[in-house]
Design a protein around this nucleic acid. Structure first.
Lengths: 252, 252
DNA sequence: CCAAAAGTGTTTCATTTACACCCATGT
DNA sequence: ACATGGGTGTAAATGAAACACTTTTGG
């Protein structure tokens, strides 16, 4: 039980334009599935290039070792900030991966978190030789095979996000404080990968109680101004039926 | 990253008659002669009494240390069998708990699994001075405070089971190979804690495709014999939309 | 005025819920 | 025969999808 190391890794997701200047991409010519507008928002995640064996030069999820006196979630936040400078607005434990041969150098058990960051903060990442954004749905084409089992981890994180976004109010963590319902709908569309009816989305969004209208409106566009909304946190109690301890600040 | 130990614990759930906390009298294995006990079925879980500090004499979840060359799920199965003799029909990772002060003796990170066992196998547990079944919804009243944060873990496992049983076909793992739809409904009722309409439950259960009728019927009861059903595993592919790697045997 | 997107209303369809009713068996 | 739970039918209620339509801005 001692011949074993504990790490944390994080799948951080942000919504960036597909032709984002910071994202080094050459894979945007009208591909086989390229029904997207050129500047459509797509889920991206930051990757770090490994500088040491194993998997030197390969891209990997941000992460690091767990120190003895910090929470697992704190370790995720710390390593995330150390490697990318990001401070996510949403952080949730995803799964713990611990297959014996995940790492060729020895037994490593990784507690993996999923994080969401708002677009403004995502722009603060210092992209460079060893840090870059990559589109979540085309990792292999843009950065090749990820280190370790990280490609599998990303797939699972995306699956979970897709299933969860349909019943939990988490998409708001990918936007700024104020947003239009069209923007929120774009987030859902990018996550789910399919268009949504604007009218029906509006109704379900406001009926869910997860957003509230403000008195502000968005001006400057060549059409009727859209009202700005704000995310409303779920009631502190357990009414929502979510995990009992999710209402408390953090755990684990 | 070395001053830290990795453990697995398991919340094992079985459906047992509520009145006799320790005496296990399960329905006959595959025989259609399963008589229904007068009292309702309730979720129970096996606990082990700690023989050493910390928390000596207190009841705790079965578990143990992870060895360097076994999967996390294998560690869960092994420790479960070592402590209780149980081999669960369903095993799923629940969450990883790693708060710094969980254990007073040092940093322990626990990967917790949820397991379901069928009533016949649950009867094989050797109940004794240091192993006992306790009703899941009344742990404090029957066994007092659990060791460590295990009470919190059980609460979370129950919450997850309740939410998952409504959309995933897992309740069947608490029954034998053949079961009536009334028995399956009793499982759902015990998990959800509320009565369900027999007619509607029947329709949704068969429409979901998670059960298939057999040619056997259950005789011996003072009413019309009930048809016996069998669980049908979800299609091997990813059609169901479940985690990609859940279709493979195991991971992590 | 026109284009474009915000926002509202309504119709249609599918699913869930409630409950009446028949069926088959042991006593 | 009758009590009991198994099993079927059906209509009301709820909710999701589709789409026509009105509103409000910039050009």
């Amino acid at each position: 039980m001692a011949d074993l190391e504990l790490a944390v890794s994080t799948v951080i997701l942000a919504l960036l334009p597909g032709s984002c200047p910071t994202a080094v991409n050459a894979a945007s010519p009208a591909g086989p599935t390229g029904e997207r507008p050129a500047d459509a928002l797509r889920l991206h995640l930051p990757l770090v290039r490994r500088t040491r064996e194993p998997f030197a030069e390969r891209w990997a999820l941000p992460g690091g070792w767990v120190t003895p006196d910090e929470r697992l979630s704190s370790a995720a936040r710390r390593t995330l900030e150390e490697t990318t400078g990001l401070r996510p607005s949403y952080l949730e434990q995803l799964y713990t991966f611990g297959a014996p041969r995940r790492s060729p150098t020895g037994r490593v058990v990784s507690v993996v978190y999923t994080a969401l960051v708002r677009a403004p903060e995502a722009a603060d990442v210092e992209v460079g030789e060893n840090v870059r954004w990559a589109p979540a749905d085309a990792l292999a084409e843009t950065v090749g095979d990820l280190a370790f089992d990280h490609a599998e981890i990303v797939d699972y994180a995306l699956w979970r996000l897709r299933t969860k976004v349909s019943y939990a109010a988490i998409a708001q963590h990918l936007l700024g404080e104020l947003f239009t319902l069209a923007e929120l709908r774009h987030v859902h569309e990018a996550v789910l990968g399919k268009p949504l009816d604007p009218a029906n989305f509006r109704r379900t969004a406001v009926a869910s109680g997860s957003v509230e209208a403000t008195e502000h409106v968005q001006t400057g566009a060549a059409h009727r101004p859209a009202r700005l909304y704000r995310a409303v946190l779920p009631p502190g109690g357990a009414a929502g039926g979510y995990p009992p301890w999710q209402s408390r600040p953090e755990l684990g």
